[in-house]
Amino acid sequence: MSSNSSFPKNEISIIRGKCLVLPGNDIDTDRIIPARFLKCVSFTNLGGQVFADDRSELKGAHPFDQKQNYGASILVVNDNFGCGSSREHAPQALMRWGIRALIGQSFAEIFYSNCLSLGIPCATGSEHLIKDLQKTIEADKSQVWELNLKHENIKSSENTFNLTLETGPLKMLLTGKWDATSQLISQKKNIEKTKKSIPYLSNFDITN
């Protein structure tokens, strides 16, 4: 299954949709997208392959296969989600399945920066709060939630949970500057200047 809604672009401030709870600590990127699916020169087909092995193991009972979770756009996980390999195929697979934001106790570093490069916010909360949020979501899976980046919270018609977003990434998402390429290129002069000042690129004639 894949999402019909378009991929993130420009300013990202509100993500509205159903939440999907995926419990467990230390869920690594090999589980999110097993290595055999990395044999591709394009990310296009990854959506259907997300959690392939875990899902086939659970024969339809995996959260990504449960009917009530179809169309969900916010994934709620626990601790150290996305650890392991740097494969961007992991957030790409989640995004192409339909996920547009993640909430969890914590995220692995490279996974987090890969999500940011795609315009997918990763918000965090305490262990207690995340478990509470997960319980509330599970009680009514059809509930529509609104993740508000500016207010750093997620709300349903009945509940509000306060979350945290790292200042830098939050600013990048709110201003639409999460896609770094153009900003980086615009520093062409400074890039050249830095390059000239680096000893190993200048026969070690410069000492900083």
Partner: peptide, 16 residues
């Protein structure tokens, strides 16, 4: 780094 960052390094020899 992830693939988007590989793109950034190819294009700008730098990273955010």
């Amino acid at each position: 780094i992830g693939t988007s960052q590989v793109r950034d390094v190819l294009a700008s020899q730098s990273l955010a």
